[in-house]
Design a protein around this nucleic acid. Structure first.
Lengths: 187, 187
DNA sequence: GATGTGATTGCAGCTTGTGCAATCACCGTA
DNA sequence: TACGGTGATTGCACAAGCTGCAATCACATC
């Protein structure tokens, strides 16, 4: 028989999400999480740099997908459209079918300032990565940064709406709406 | 004679900034900071919620000024222009004459992921406050959010440039340039 | 002169996070 | 089958961040 039960990281994430959801992030200790996942504290910190990171297991993959999609896109597209198209593709691939889980996770994050800060950090890193991908194509760093930031702003507005109870439109449609609104508001 | 030396919070901030600048945020302990400021750890945590917060003493005042300036502005201005005007005024009042100190502080923050996350949190809170101030005037929440986010994006681009060594233009001018670039990129 | 206020302090204790060494199933190779 | 390397997990000791509670005592007020 195997020495350990498989999927330690996933078990830790699941246990953590359940506990954070029930009793809040601050009122949950790492000791409780590892007890539920039948592991030890040391193992928790082998998998995750800190207590917050357990909720962001997929963000690096998300960033890779988006950057790849930008690089694979049509070079003739204006920078903002290039990013938006990539976000559409990834929204369909990684979000659309998991609205309930994603909304649940987002509620946990939104309920705690520390987790919110971590998410902002991930978003900022993603924005930088997008800007770098754009710059590899179009050149000008400031344009790349502004296009990346604008796209992420629209994405954020769309995501907020998408996780509202009762909302049924797809994230892709909401993103396109948000881009239209942004063009009106800025232009 | 007075029981304690005055301005404890300011002394703590000064001591912390010096130490962070010399040896980095992570390599500096709260014990070192309070020793330099001639206070105790308990007093440090009476003044600041955590070790990072010592670098953000002025951010609440900054937020108040900007929100007040938006409320005091011309009601007929489109939302983005209303925010930009407020940012211009506050840039002149609180930043323009302190480029060296501000750049120094920004370098310390940029050098550490934890501090960067905290700054992103402050910026997000400021964006929400701006959006709320706009919404009190123009109504639509999504437009308010997008205008606030777009203005903060331009502000961020301008600030980056303003703190570059050798840059001599004013933050106000750089902000207006960034808004123009944003309009081009988005529109 | 009595009294209340508030900034500071000491201390005990919990939680997060790290370095280092040890364990032991699994895998490839001889 | 035997053998040695790999890698995920663990225990332990410890630094550092942060909190609750009670005590101090200059200062202001009456």
């Amino acid at each position: 028989m195997p020495r350990w039960k498989p999927d330690a990281a996933e078990r830790l994430q699941t246990a953590a999400l359940e506990l954070f959801d029930q009793q809040g992030f601050e009122r949950t200790t790492v000791a409780e999480i590892v007890q539920r996942a039948e592991l030890t504290q040391r193992t928790f910190f082998n998998h995750f740099a800190d207590k917050r990171e357990v909720l962001f297991r997929l963000s690096s993959r998300l960033q890779e997908e988006i950057v790849r999609e930008i690089a694979a896109g049509d070079d003739a597209l204006p920078p903002l459209d290039a990013v938006v198209r990539a976000l559409e593709v990834v929204a369909d691939k990684m979000f659309e079918d998991h609205r309930a889980v994603v909304a649940r996770r987002h509620a946990v994050i939104a309920a705690n300032p520390e987790l919110l800060e971590r998410e902002l950090g991930k978003n900022a890193a993603l924005t930088e990565a997008i800007a770098a991908a754009l710059q590899a194509r179009c050149g000008d760093p400031e344009t790349a940064f502004l296009a990346a930031g604008a796209a992420m702003l629209a994405q954020q507005a769309a995501f907020r709406q998408w996780t509202r109870p009762g909302e049924t439109r797809t994230l892709r449609d909401l993103l396109l709406d948000a881009v239209r609104s942004l063009r009106t508001t800025v232009g």
